[in-house]
């Protein structure tokens, strides 16, 4: 891009108001020069919103009619159930606690996750849109393998196989475009994924797997229990 600024131009000025955007740096979001079709908020959007809300309430109602909210025995401080589980969205954390010391699993890792989420928009790596292998391929490969090995080693050290396996799979996927170098198809699609995309995908996969394991696969003494052996 050579121009310092670009203007949004529409063919029908009555439909689309003119907007001017100033672009100061190359890394900023691109402004497409496009003639975007517009719609009246009412009814196009409002009706959709209402219908979506209605469907949501209907689904919730049907679920509520057939599945009762759990209510166990009255609280008894003298009897700890085995296993004692937190609500499901914390079971990923509880699963982490099973592997790592409490300070790491219960404090540092979740704090890191929240901080990492908060700062996402402020890091260049996240704003970049280029694929992972766009720049210096050799350098990227060395860094990726080093970081990947280090991570796998730590996970192996703590015997966190539920995290190790997805980590290896994702690193494998990241390496596919390096090996194959095809520009089209699914490999091409993989190749065009940015680093931030990969990190987020890794984080989400791990979070989902840990939560699922904690919810469905953990029984008394936090031992591995298949869902058909009983849900705890």
């Amino acid at each position: 891009m050579q121009k310092d600024f670009s203007a949004e131009v529409a063919s029908d000025a009555k439909k689309v108001p003119r907007r001017i955007a100033f672009i100061k740096a190359r890394t900023a979001a691109r402004v497409k020069e496009s003639d975007e079709e517009m719609a009246m908020t009412f009814p196009s959007l409002v009706v959709k919103e209402i219908i979506a809300f209605e469907i949501m309430v209907i689904v919730l109602t049907l679920v509520s009619l057939f599945v009762d909210a759990p209510l166990e025995w009255i609280a008894n401080a003298e009897h700890t159930p085995n296993p004692a589980k937190a609500p499901w969205y914390f079971l990923g954390l509880q699963e982490l606690l099973h592997y790592f010391p409490p300070v790491v699993g219960g404090v540092i890792l979740p704090m890191l996750a929240v901080v990492a989420l908060v700062v996402i928009p402020y890091f260049r790596v996240n704003v970049k849109r280029e694929g992972l292998w766009k720049d210096d391929i050799r350098h990227t490969f060395v860094v990726l393998v080093t970081v990947g090995s280090l991570l796998s080693f730590i996970l192996l050290l703590f015997e966190v196989y539920v995290m190790l396996v997805p980590t290896l799979v994702i690193i494998g996927c990241m390496l596919i475009p390096y090996i194959s170098r095809k520009e089209t198809g699914s490999i091409g699609w993989l190749g065009s994924r940015s680093l931030s995309w990969w990190i987020m995908t890794w984080f989400v996969t791990i979070a989902v797997i840990l939560t699922a394991v904690g919810t469905l696969f953990r029984g008394p003494e936090w031992s591995w229990t298949w869902p058909w052996e009983g849900l705890y």
Partner: peptide, 16 residues
């Protein structure tokens, strides 16, 4: 709801 589920769910959470 103050049942076993909630009591121990919260106990586990606050212990973290």
């Amino acid at each position: 709801p103050w049942d076993q589920l909630s009591f121990w769910g919260i106990s586990v959470g606050t212990n973290m």
